[in-house]
Design a protein around this nucleic acid. Sequence first.
RNA 1: GGGCGAAUAGCUCAGCGGUUCAGAGCGCCUGCCUUACACGCAGGAUGUCGGGGGUUCGAAUCCCUCUUCGCCCACCA
Length: 893
Amino acid sequence: MTTTGFALPPQYDPHAVEAALYRRWLERGAFTPGSAGRREPYVIVMPPPNITAILHMGQGLDNVIQDVLIRFERMRGRDALWLPGTDHAGIATQNVVERLVAKEGKTRFDLGREAFVERVWTFVRQTGSTILEQLKVIGASCDWSRTRFTFDPAYSRAVREVFVRLWEEGLIYRGHRVIHWCPRCLTALSDEEAESKDRDGKLYYIRYPVEGGPTPHLTVATTRPETLLGDTAVAVNPADARHAAFVGKLARLPIADIAIPIIADDAVDPAFGTGFVKVTPAHDATDFEIGLRHKLEMPLVMTEDGRMEHPTRVPKSLAGLDRFDARTKIVDMLKERGLLEKIEPHRHAVRRCYRCDTLVEPRLSDQWFVKMKPLAEPALAAYHRGEYRIVPERWKATYERWMEGIRDWNISRQLWWGHRIPVFTCTKCGEQWADREDPATCRKCGGPVEQDPDVLDTWFSSWLWPFATLGWPDVTPDLERFYPGHTLVSGPDIIFFWVARMVMSGYHFMGDRPFRTIYLHGIVRDTEHRKMSKSLGNGIDPLDVVERFGADALRWTVIGGGSLGADVILDPNDLEATFAPGRNFANKLWNIGRFILAQLPERVRPLESFEQSQLPLADRWILMRANDAVAAATTSMEQFRLDEGAKRCYEFVWGELADWYVEAVKPRLASDGAGSRAAAHSVLAHCFDTALRLLHPVVPFITEELWRKVPGRQPDELLAVAPWPSFRPELVNSELDLQFLRVKQVVEKIRGIRAEYKVPPKARLRASITARGRDHRKVFEAENETIRRLAQLDELSFDGAAKRVGAYAVFGDGSEVFVALEGAIDVQQECRRLSGELIRLDQQLSGLSGKLANQQFVARAPAEVVAKEREKERAWRDQRQVLADKLRSLGCS
RNA sequence: GGGCGAAUAGCUCAGCGGUUCAGAGCGCCUGCCUUACACGCAGGAUGUCGGGGGUUCGAAUCCCUCUUCGCCCACCA
């Protein structure tokens, strides 16, 4: 016997081991697959967090899931590549640095473009990969040697290549239209970046005087009165008889005092408001369309930062006013002139900038767009062909609908931090083209050229992530080996931003899917189901959790907290209740390890050297349960039911191995019976080893730490790359399971009686079992010692005197057993207890009998179900009989 | 306006056609420092499975509907 086990402290201390273990993994290159090799690759690309990000719980969940999957596949013998990296995150990063600059009392314009970008680079280099370091703390087994950044020179080359190719294919064009504009970030946004949210607003009914109309006024309804300065028409639905007489007349625009036509257009919903709509083509997407159809003027009446401005339409009193101040003032002015009919409360959707939450202002402008239909169609067709799938499937409809109705993608941003758009224009001849290299002069006339000042949408670089990270456009060994990837793990919030676009770019540029499976997990929320966020202050800092409970506890909780695709609810106000179970489980595992390691000799005989059928019942049972855990863990992983696998392993370790097997085997460990003891060692070692392997993907630190302490382990061996256990169907044996179940039931009944009669723990007890029928008696006799130990009996006999006195229990389930404990009992109490049992049994029995008496059931239910129920009924009747006899013999009424 | 998801023990959730399927963890109650673990051990209480209809021999489990929450999409000016 060694003393390894008891040399360990009785409590697991994550801090003592986590960092060192992570270092060992890195030193051994456990996370770095080669570019060549015979083993089948398995690839996950990490959704690159923003370069400025610090780890939050959502990313914690996302990355733990990825790590579990990658560790599982690695152990299964795949060449597992988890490729990490960061996103330069155009708007987000620029905003962060702008705030820094603002602290010095400056704006980015004070610094100038070049200096500002340099400033961002400095910032990025200083604080850049904080989040990647944090991922190491939670155990992420990424291949850090392949870390990428969307602004790396090589990556930037891929971005540029993509742009130029799309340009050459005619899929990029300059669009003049109303787009989403953030007046704070001073840039255009894509449709996805302008998040729509409902909010309570107001609907203003405003009178416009009409020249020569049926009435002196018409009334329009609007939520944005300030935009009336940009109105160039009033529209009605052509089918709206109420207002037909107005069409062709002129309305007088209040305040701006301009005559505008009254027109008819199908886009107008006659049921909304008054049926009259003010048309502001430069500040509303629908109105822009109307404007095009009717060849209306499209004056911009606001500056880029959202202040009112126009040489003729905006009066001096309003010029320069912020749009919301202007709204207030214009409403006042309208009131004064009697042109404000009423204001109604109105709930409607407003769009906000996804980076700064500012209300987006629709604005007519020139931007670069990508035609998306030609990209979406092949990707969607491939989806329908089943080339890649989405888990859980309920996202199918959402995905398909977006892909089917896809709109062109506005990719130009009026920012400085990002990939500069590689479009060049000759100032002399006007030639315009996209170029892979920066041209010195015009390719046509040799004149001077200017590059487009804008940068690309951040997502225009991240949608290339699955192949640009592998060296594309060059055909590198990595690209050939690791594309296409396998699983993409993400929250559903970026399904359009990123996931769908990656699929499109994958098919378009690589001719193949970027991954086979898209697993969309849930969102981390608090107990009120609010998304965890900094602004709400309901966040949980993952690093704080690691500090207090250990990385494995964090991982355990987020994995166990959500089933397939379900949200994970965590309580920020009770971290103890939330994370202690994970910590406690780790501690349990640790102590099982302490115990087992203390028992094992230097050399443990291989399990195969024992004739399995000769092993004691408990041994064969626990080996079977271990085998069952292997099956459950494996299929759960394959089906993304990580919680299920983890819970099954938990049950195996705690509920089966620790609670039953270890307790049952203790006497054998202390005995001199060499064979029995050696077998116990082998079984313990096998079960412990299996448990560690199965649990490693979820709780990698503690399992690695324990695994390396097992006798005979070579110093350079790592559990992280050890083989995943294989399921052995030949071990499945339900009869065996039943036999051990009977032992458990006997023990539990005796314990129950002990508690019920408040038998002092130290009191001496004897019990006697009478097994009726079958071979159960053999089982009980063989397990005499085990039962005695587990039920804390001094003596266990069979048949005989048991019926005379004592508390009493009957077993169902096909076996008929009774147990009696000797000692003083209260007959009254015993009668009450047993009658209670009888009543319960009768209830169950009558339900079951009724069911079996039902002709419909017997006729229509599957034969095996009926047979099973018959068998059960027979057993229960026997059980009832025995119980009733006992009651009679006690003289109960 | 359309679509999706959720509603099961005090809390967070699992179960998703067959009476040991009414469960787990936390919390609660009663005993225990039984030589691995008090971050533990043993025993225990708690739920008309959101309401109402339906399908079925049989429903927490399938269908419809209502209510309440949450999310996504949409040119609600």
